[in-house]
Design a protein around this nucleic acid. Structure first.
Lengths: 130, 130
DNA sequence: CATAGCGTATCAGTGAAGTAATACGCTATG
DNA sequence: CATAGCGTATTACTTCACTGATACGCTATG
């Protein structure tokens, strides 16, 4: 559970925490049932306020990523693959709204927009290799 | 040159103005060489501060949409089709970076991500009809 | 050179988002 | 029942984006 934040990056700390937890789950480093560090300990480790971590954990719970049992540590939620897939798609949809509006507003053909997205995905997944 | 803004929409007024100018250019209502309303007159018409319009016009000029000749009205810039196309693609690219990162981080296949984008584009262009 | 119209530099006000400080209630454990 | 550890409600502070008020410099025109 290595989490690192950069307070001067412009990206809110609570969001950085959320992203990294999600990433660790996607990568398999965090598995369903695994316990997360206590709000207080993680906040001390990162040098931020407990409320900031609390906010991140809360949003992750609201999104169904984590599961809370009062009095017990927070754990990674068990998800059946189907539900997981649906959630991934939803998240992708959200990050695509800007690009949809842009393509429309620019008067680009759907094919053209798709081609550009395809190219970017190719480039990105190639870099991933290294 | 019909421009309407809703100050209570959450979207910054200067951005609403930018979007509508861009839209009118895309739709052909504004053509290269056409003059734009003076900062002061448009601001009076919309009931906002001249600085707000000035900001919108400036950003549009920075983006190469408008052209400024000191002492003369602002005009829609003349662009050869090729340059225009390159610029559109660049803008689309920028709005797609989030979605590329998301797809990668979620571990989605490129095909899957493209399918989702395609669906969203379909929906959006259908709504456009109405 | 006077002036009318223009854009905007500069500064101040406002609201929302992010973060922090403090203190409270809850649960497990003995 | 005491207490240790936990998450967080509440409140306040900071920062920044957006907007507004004012005043200045520039250009075309006569």
């Amino acid at each position: 559970m290595l989490i690192v934040v950069d307070p001067s990056s412009g990206v809110p700390v609570f969001r950085q925490v959320m992203d990294q937890v999600r990433f660790h789950i996607a990568s398999g480093l965090l598995q369903p049932g695994d316990e997360l560090p206590a709000t207080r300990s993680l906040s001390a480790e990162l040098g931020v306020n407990p409320m900031t971590i609390s906010k991140a954990y809360n949003l992750l719970e609201r999104d169904g990523v984590l599961e809370r049992r009062p009095g017990r540590p927070l754990v990674v939620r068990e998800l059946d693959p189907e539900e997981l897939e649906v959630e991934k798609i939803d998240r992708l949809r959200a990050s695509l709204t800007d690009a949809v509006r842009a393509a429309l507003q620019l008067g680009l053909e759907n094919d053209e927009a798709l081609r550009v997205y395809g190219e970017l995905l190719e480039e990105a997944s190639e870099e991933e290799q290294s």
